[in-house]
Design a protein around this nucleic acid. Structure first.
Lengths: 95, 95
DNA sequence: TTGACAGGCAAGTAGACACTTGCCTATTGT
DNA sequence: ACAATAGGCAAGTGTCTACTTGCCTGTCAA
């Protein structure tokens, strides 16, 4: 649970989640390219790799190895715990 | 939106949200006392105050002044944007 | 009015974290 | 076999941030 919040704290990691939402199962190099293009993030491959490690530790991303490729898949289920921990207030329940 | 993630990144701030979930409308001193008791957090009043500033900036807490007291109220509505940004995957939609 | 109480402002410090740099391993295509 | 590709490991650096310390302002009760 701790890891999820830490993971979401960084804008680059959030952009990675956005990218995987747009196209699931990307490799590290694909993510680097698309983050540079669409999000204007000029980070190094190692930087992105370290960010992915954080996301994997948080359980928000899991990976599948295939030969020399490693594909990354989004898992949003840890996010549900957030709204479960601090439920909507009564004024929000019935709009 | 940025502020919400930053705010949630700190365990003390999450404990404050927990406290306000348990009892809404507490003052700064009440929060300090209960954080020390229940959550074992020996932070200073100023530290808690600075955390509250972050939570207010994030829109997760709003305040009401009354004489020399200042009451703090929880607002969880910004949290809904999180699961709205990264929606549940198909495997999670129908369990 | 004066002391106690609730809270605010601002500067300084120590630790965490994002990012880079440099080198290494494994898999694939020609 | 060999070069190119995809990715990994680890140490060093700079910045951000949580926390403290010290002092100040406003409010209420005796």
């Amino acid at each position: 649970m701790e890891g999820v919040f830490k993971a979401l704290a960084d804008p680059t990691r959030r952009a990675i989640l956005d990218e995987l939402t747009d196209r699931d199962g990307q490799t590290l190099f694909e993510l680097c390219a698309r983050l540079a293009m669409k999000h204007g993030m000029g980070s190094t491959r190692q930087a992105i790799s370290q960010h992915i490690d954080v996301l994997v530790s948080a359980g928000l991303v899991h990976t599948r190895r295939e030969g020399r490729y490693k594909f990354h898949y989004l898992d949003t289920s840890p996010l549900l715990d957030i709204t479960r921990r601090w439920p909507p207030t009564k004024t929000q329940e019935a709009p």
